[in-house]
């Protein structure tokens, strides 16, 4: 359905915006390394079914490979700034102070409590879904602390939030047309969209209405 396709495209766009801006401006100002590392972990633990020969479709396969590869690539790209631009890297590390072990531990507990079957793959899948729902927090925390945002981070977070927002409509669509619903994905998806709601409001005020407001 259209919600899902546009959701996936929005997700692709967010990665494209991030990669393009970092590569063309050679700047990592305002980007949270922790959030990017969490996303790499999310895809690594979710797409393990690539190795179980569980075939869904060519689209599904290519997207999984792309998300996996691009998330790892972004982490490597950010790490390169450690030697390429130590001052910018150090500044990022100093601002990127969110305690992610709470997110990791919380997602692990949620994965152990809510899963479809008690197998390693299913628990890791559930862990990845919960972790994705909170992985943006270090980035939002960094944004709120610095009080300024590069157009990069603003558009990046907007595209990422839009992706999750569209997925909610996708689930409503599927519930109606296919009579299928994945409770874990839906609850985590709503949590994730809620994380962005404050940001969306700021984005609306700042970007759409053109006011220079404060950040979330």
């Amino acid at each position: 359905n259209l919600f899902r396709i546009f959701g996936d495209l929005s997700h692709l766009a967010s990665i494209g915006i991030l990669l393009h801006t970092v590569r063309s401006t050679q700047s990592i100002d305002g980007i949270s390394f922790k959030t990017q590392a969490l996303y790499a972990l999310v895809f690594m633990t979710r797409y393990l079914d690539l190795f179980t020969w569980h075939w869904v479709s060519l689209y599904n396969f290519l997207m999984k490979v792309f998300f996996l590869a691009s998330s790892v690539y972004i982490v490597v790209l950010l790490q390169q700034f450690r030697t390429k631009n130590p001052i910018a890297y150090k500044e990022m590390v100093l601002q990127d102070t969110f305690k992610i072990h709470f997110l990791l531990l919380g997602s692990l507990v949620a994965g152990l409590c809510f899963h479809h079957r008690f197998t390693l793959l299913e628990i890791l899948w559930s862990f990845s879904v919960w972790l994705e729902s909170v992985a943006i927090l270090p980035q939002l925390f960094m944004l709120s602390k610095s009080g300024r945002a590069q157009s990069l981070t603003v558009h990046y977070i907007f595209a990422l939030g839009l992706y999750r927002f569209l997925y909610i409509f996708n689930w409503i669509w599927r519930y109606v047309s296919e009579a299928r619903v994945d409770k874990i994905a839906v609850v985590a998806g709503i949590v994730q969209t809620a994380m962005y709601s404050d940001f969306f409001y700021i984005y609306y005020k700042k970007v759409i209405r053109g006011n220079a407001g404060n950040l979330p």
Binding site: H11, V56, R180, D182
Partner: peptide
């Protein structure tokens, strides 16, 4: 309605 995994999503 079927409540269960929808694993064809990303």
């Amino acid at each position: 309605h079927v409540i269960g995994p929808v694993k064809d999503e990303l």
